[in-house]
């Protein structure tokens, strides 16, 4: 990046950082609700958003005693917006939890592989939730029936016989996407399908064919809708 790029960036991007974070969070939320697999945890974004929500709650608590009607109405607006933000964050986290509950062993393997990169798949609390939930589950299974099986049949992640016991999300599931930049040729593996995706286009396409351009998992040139 040289100085011209930096200047161009400043000139174009006059949007306040708060607004950009809202746009990013909204995009992450929609993507997480739509994508068949769990997407990397946007840790910087979430840190900023949660910190702002915390400060806003403090502000509301500070001013609630104020009976001046003008401030009161301002407070109504602030609280309405606060609730909207809280809904976004909550729905985002719950969508992730649903995926964690559905495929814990698969996600743990993916997460372990991702810890060396810059974008770990799960947040620390999600990891904690998943490991303790999973250990409770496996303890329960083994105390209620698994312990009575032969030792060779007690595993929960058996891969013998060419079939893995570990459930995986369907990565070829069709998704609705919108290109935010010219992406170029998309090739759907295993078929003759090939097409060009241009900025602004909306396509129904397999997740596996676009994931390397997607928000979260790839370059971010394609968003899920």
């Amino acid at each position: 990046m040289d100085i011209d790029d930096l200047l161009a960036e400043v000139a174009v991007d006059s949007t306040p950082p708060e607004t950009r974070d809202l746009q990013e969070l909204t995009r992450c939320w929609v993507a997480e609700r739509v994508a068949p697999e769990i997407l990397p945890w946007p840790s910087d974004l979430m840190d900023r958003v949660l910190e702002r929500i915390r400060r806003q709650i403090e502000l509301v608590e500070d001013q609630t005693g104020n009976m001046d009607p003008k401030t009161n109405f301002k407070l109504i607006i602030i609280q309405t917006e606060l609730e909207r933000f809280k809904f976004l964050v909550r729905s985002f986290l719950r969508a992730r939890m649903k995926k964690i509950d559905a495929h814990p062993i698969h996600i743990l393997a993916q997460h372990t592989a991702s810890t060396s990169t810059f974008a770990p798949l799960l947040s620390p609390s999600e990891l904690q939730y998943m490991t303790s939930h999973q250990s409770l589950l496996s303890n329960h299974y083994s105390s209620s029936f698994l312990s009575q099986f032969p030792a060779s049949l007690q595993r929960l992640d058996d891969t013998t016989g060419g079939i893995s016991m570990v459930d995986k999300p369907d990565e070829d599931k069709a998704v609705f996407v919108r290109a935010m930049k010219d992406v170029g040729d998309i090739f759907v593996e295993g078929t003759d399908r090939r097409f060009e995706m241009k900025r602004g286009d909306v396509w129904v396409v397999r997740w596996s064919a676009v994931r390397r351009w997607s928000v979260g998992t790839g370059t971010g040139d394609v968003e899920l809708i």
């Binding site: 599931k173 069709a174 998309i186 003759d192 396509w203 129904v204 397999r206």
Partner: peptide, 30 residues
């Protein structure tokens, strides 16, 4: 089965209404 259907100009609510059916057909055929 391959997917790859262009839907420029489609609206948000229309995506929401059509999603289950459209993706269901593509996934089923796949």
């Amino acid at each position: 089965a391959g997917g790859g259907v262009k839907m420029n100009g489609v609206g948000g609510m229309e995506v929401g209404e059509g999603r289950a059916f459209v993706t269901g057909v593509i996934d089923g055929l796949r």
